[in-house]
Design a protein around this nucleic acid. Structure first.
Lengths: 213, 213
DNA sequence: AGCGGCGTATTAACGACGTTAACTTAACGC
DNA sequence: GCGTTAAGTTAACGTCGTTAATACGCCGCT
């Protein structure tokens, strides 16, 4: 249980001392993240709900985040940094670049299914919301994509993948992984075969199609 | 311009005669669809906005649709029926089953990019909303998927595709197409290469990976 | 001719949301 | 002591989806 101790509304929490105002910020992020991980969807994670979980009134959040999108974005950025780290770690274990890509693929889907709400907010939200702000900064997602391009380029350099543009090939692989992850998250009522079968097949088809010959 | 004539709030529209109450229903659907096609996102298509476009007060909509999700679902169902028809038509032109799959793939992405809000609501919304209701009925999307499975099975029967389970192979192809479509819609700020290049590469990689050998 | 009933809508309202403005409270430097 | 300032609250606005109660007007019936 990563959820912080809940707070009874009868003891409305002491105000933070003078210079320590910034301490509230991570608590807000933790509370929002805990709710998302607990299965709450984006709508359920309201400013009022987050505020109550932290033991504070809603306007207090606005001292630390410009609006709700910025709060959710920051929650996702934190997780996506770990997302990137995990995928890089998964690929580093293999000497063969194609095997490395396969391990990365499995790590990608596994992460998405482990943090479905984070994944949804960052990737399935669409323009106008979180996405615009994520574009303005560097973005952990951007960094992860560049790492993927590098991994594909390694396969090209080793003469294992067809020598197309590495970025286009990386987008192709990304599309397949994102597509599978997004479908599994968005349509849980579909009669999916076992996830391991799907991941294996998608990775297999994709990597075979990307290989030389 | 598919948008119906706008309505000045000064002439609040005549009430429909006795047996003709059902005539309001398609007008509501048309208004909502026109807004979505006009670039409005799901949030902007509010019950109040739809009501005003039709020239009616918001509660009048509830005589014809249980809630907002049901209205949006029905809008999408109508478009997805055409989605299915267009893809089937695209695949019917080719004798070769692999070529047929390629043409279907191009039609899929093209349709998604032409109707991004419909696509988002039906596929990127996630559980709890439209998705649950879509699952309860047959669903035009389900039908389209079964047609895709049949097209893949045709390739297997012609010894052109590897003889895995047709459904798993179809999901793999679907994942790639959905992934590309969803990414293009959700992250417009990304420095995408030309769409035709992406579609061609994704389809090529996917079909090569699905083929025999 | 009058009248009940029902189909078609409206007006009014509830609760929840994101967000802003104005105010309070308390600790610090001088 | 006293203004300044950080940290938070109370109150409110406008929006949303949705529901309850009500009005309007045509139909068939006696």
């Amino acid at each position: 249980m990563t959820a912080p101790a809940e707070r009874s509304p009868s003891s409305p929490r002491a105000r933070l001392p003078r210079g320590q105002g910034e301490l509230l910020r991570p608590q807000i992020l933790d509370a929002a993240e805990a709710m998302l991980l607990g299965g709450a969807d984006e709508h359920a994670v309201s400013m009022r709900a987050v505020a109550e979980a932290v033991g504070v009134t809603p306007p207090a959040i606005y001292r630390h985040f410009a609006d709700k999108d910025e709060l959710l974005l920051e929650v996702c950025e934190r997780r996506f940094t770990e997302f990137d780290v995990q995928i890089e770690a998964a690929g580093a274990d293999a000497g063969d670049p194609v095997t490395a890509l396969r391990l990365r693929a499995e790590a990608y889907v596994r992460f998405g299914l482990t943090h479905p709400e984070h994944y949804r907010i960052l990737f399935l939200k669409g323009p106008g919301g979180v996405e615009r702000r994520a574009a303005e900064r560097g973005g952990a997602g951007r960094r992860a994509f560049e790492h993927l391009v590098a991994a594909v380029q390694a396969g090209i350099d080793a003469d294992r993948l067809r020598s197309d543009d590495a970025m286009v090939l990386a987008i192709s692989l990304w599309s397949a992984l994102h597509g599978l992850t997004a479908l599994l998250i968005s349509i849980p009522s579909f009669p999916w075969p076992p996830v391991e079968t799907l991941v294996a097949t998608v990775a297999d088809v994709q990597l075979r199609g990307m290989q030389r010959g």
